[in-house]
């Protein structure tokens, strides 16, 4: 090997990062070449000195606080989550879901009440409180008032009676027809 070749492999030689046969060749050359030995020693000294440089430890407090500082910075850098999505994240989910369900049930119940106002009563209540046909048919007037109403305008009286009838009463009145 030539001195020039040795200069190119000083670092891998010192780190044993070469084929064993190459290391042997270099060692042989170094044994007979004082100049290359000096160069090799200079490189070794550099590596030893570089390795000896230490980084000052910033102390326990710095290390203890470090994760929290990262967490804070991370929260600052994260893009803000839209409010609608935020509601579904974290602890608010179950109370929100419960409240929404209750609102839905109450709303549905109220709406059902509105639409059911004219619907027939259930079978059991029908048995207990079934009014007579006469009760259904007669408007809430006493005898004298009713007679007067009929005398004045029979058509209007009939129309008024018809308006007061519900579907059940109509069915009952016309069931035989």
């Amino acid at each position: 090997m030539t001195c020039h070749e040795i200069k190119n492999v000083t670092v891998p030689y010192l780190e044993l990062d070469l084929e064993p046969s190459r290391i042997r060749d270099i060692t042989l050359h170094l044994d007979g070449c004082a100049e290359c030995r000096v160069d090799m020693e200079a490189v070794r000294q550099v590596l030893v000195r570089v390795k000896g440089l230490a980084v000052p430890d910033p102390g326990d407090r710095f290390w203890d606080d470090f994760p929290d500082r990262v967490r804070l910075e991370l929260a600052r850098e994260r893009p803000p989550i839209p409010f609608s999505l935020r509601l579904w994240k974290g602890r608010a989910v179950w109370p929100m879901a419960l409240a929404a369900t209750m609102l839905f049930v109450v709303g549905a119940w109220s709406l059902a009440g509105l639409f059911d106002r004219g619907s027939p009563p259930s079978q059991s209540s029908t048995v207990a409180q079934t009014p007579t046909v006469a009760e259904y048919d007669l408007p809430q007037l006493d005898e004298a008032e009713w007679q007067q109403f009929w005398d004045e305008d029979p058509d209007l009286a009939l129309a008024d009676m018809a308006a007061g009838l519900d579907r059940q009463a109509v069915d009952r009145l016309f069931k035989d027809i």
Binding site: T10, V11, D39, V43, V46, L47, R49, V50
Partner: peptide, 9 residues
């Protein structure tokens, strides 16, 4: 490493 060696020398 070579840079450092030359600088040191």
């Amino acid at each position: 490493v070579d840079h450092l060696r030359r600088a040191l020398a």
